[in-house]
Design a protein around this nucleic acid. Structure first.
Lengths: 294, 294
DNA sequence: ATCTATTTTATACCGGCAGTTCAATTTGTG
DNA sequence: CACAAATTGAACTGCCGGTATAAAATAGAT
């Protein structure tokens, strides 16, 4: 992307953080980023489109940062989950994401509204997928409800906690508390066997975003963790981490690279290792087959 | 209030429901309600002030309707609580209250913002007070947290449930589910003895809205219920219900009327009844004393 | 019925907004 | 240098919330 355009995005974002979206006029943006009106409308067709560019950029950043915490870690580790939420909340606060979101959500621009709705959905889906990682498979049918309730609880807790203690910046405590309640919530919902929604609704809400990929990521992480348990060879650990990173975070994972790394790993055989490595290779093979089928 | 002014309020509210607040121009309101610009600014100093008039009117209505469900009922009855929430949610939907709220919440008008913040607080406080009615006294220290989490859960549940089933209008199911989870939440929080906020924060959040009144209402309801248990005389039940209604719902309860009713009740003595009636009279006396002290 | 005071109306006006258009200018590139 | 692309900035449209005001309608009191 044009660096000038990127700079306009950054400057405008800064203004939106300070003054809000509605209260920032295009003239303000022109003055602050030192471009002319003609250039602005050359870059963006409207103020809304600029905002979408900002959200898209931020969304990619937080997604990446969030997932980086998971590299080489056990996805069922609650501590990692808490760290991810903490990261997300600090990110929200730093960039006034929720404020901008609320301000603009009820908008006359239907395109913008759809866009924000989808972002909201993807946020819930992320939480849901992480809950699938965190809890037993038998809980899965209840975890969409729990993800929805958890986000509601968490955001309300944060909102009112900071209203009561404006000076504190202690997200950690609120998140820990909310996650503790979440655990009770999951067992309670499962105990009573009650549903509101079932995870199958994802096909309707986010079609074309197959959740099998998410399940795959979890299995991949487990498999790689198992392999790492049995070696203490820094180089091979790096290679395994690279595979995980490449498969889970690249938009288009480079198949040839991953296969090369797998081959390289196979050359250094050890007892019991070979079988697990084969199973990893199988899994990745099925993943690429599934991707190409789409 | 001027009936013409009230009509403008109604017409404008209708437009806000249909098109939203921002998207409705003052000219729209003038055309739709058939007044001139001069008259509008004679009634309201700004568009925001008109909105505040709408919110104030609606807030009084929902408060009254909500409390009417409680007359002559046991405040610890969960079914009544569910009915109240159901009423509130249908009211919200009918008048697009939450939508208007969100749309306007991030506003440049600081007065409007404060006003809406206070409405939000009063909503949480109402939930909190009802939870105090519903659960054991020992749970009270955890009930503010639970009220905050419950509203978050409930609103998210409703939002996503209706997104999944747009045709259904079945608030009941979602509310029942949310209340079921709430019960688990309360025991869970109490079991772990964890806090985020303590109810003492109310002094800071809504100063001058003493919660003793709320506690009084509960005690009054209990006392009146006890009295009603021992009689099956329709006329006296009506009189007791009148007292409860007058004290809890009138802005300025008419002391002389209540005293007259109490005297009338005392004339019809029965065994064991007199003592409880005296205690009721004492309680009401202290209430008025407290009110006058403010 | 008449006089007076208030309310209502209609219209023009203000500054500011998002967005369009376009001719002139600058900049990058071979 | 020359040519194309990007950039500029001012003028313009139509809408907004809000102000100002003179004329007309209405209501109330005598």
């Amino acid at each position: 992307m044009n660096s000038r355009k990127q700079q306009v995005i950054n400057r405008a974002h800064q203004l939106f953080i300070e003054k809000g979206f509605q209260a920032t006029s295009i003239q303000d943006i022109l003055d602050y980023s030192g471009i002319s009106k003609g250039t602005f409308y050359n870059y963006f067709s409207s103020k809304s489109e600029l905002l979408i560019a900002i959200f898209t950029s931020l969304s990619q950043r937080i997604d990446q940062e969030r997932n980086e915490l998971l590299i080489g870690q056990d996805p069922s580790n609650k501590e990692i989950f808490i760290q991810q939420i903490e990261l997300q909340m600090e990110f929200n606060q730093k960039h006034k994401l929720l404020t901008l979101f609320e301000e603009v959500f009820v908008s006359n621009d239907p395109f913008l509204k759809d866009f924000l709705n989808q972002m909201k959905m993807m946020y819930i889906r992320w939480i849901y997928n992480r809950l699938v990682d965190l809890f037993e498979e038998s809980m899965r049918p209840f975890l969409l409800d729990c993800a929805i309730m958890f986000t509601g609880m968490l955001h309300n807790n944060i909102h009112f906690y900071f209203l009561a203690h404006p000076s504190l910046r202690d997200f950690r405590k609120v998140i820990q508390y909310s996650v503790n309640r979440l655990e009770g919530l999951v067992v309670d919902a499962a105990k009573h066997g009650e549903h509101l929604l079932t995870p199958s609704i994802w096909d309707k809400w986010l079609p074309g975003c197959p959740t099998f990929e998410e399940g795959f990521k979890k299995k991949l992480a487990n498999s790689i963790n198992e392999l790492k348990m049995e070696i203490h060879d820094g180089k091979r650990i790096e290679l395994l981490d690279f595979i995980q990173e490449e498969v889970t975070h690249s938009k288009i994972p480079r198949k040839f690279l991953i296969e090369a790394v797998l081959s390289s790993l196979e050359n250094q055989q050890e007892t019991g290792w070979n079988r697990k490595l084969d199973s990893l290779r199988d899994m990745i093979g099925r993943f690429f087959a599934g991707q190409e089928a789409i």
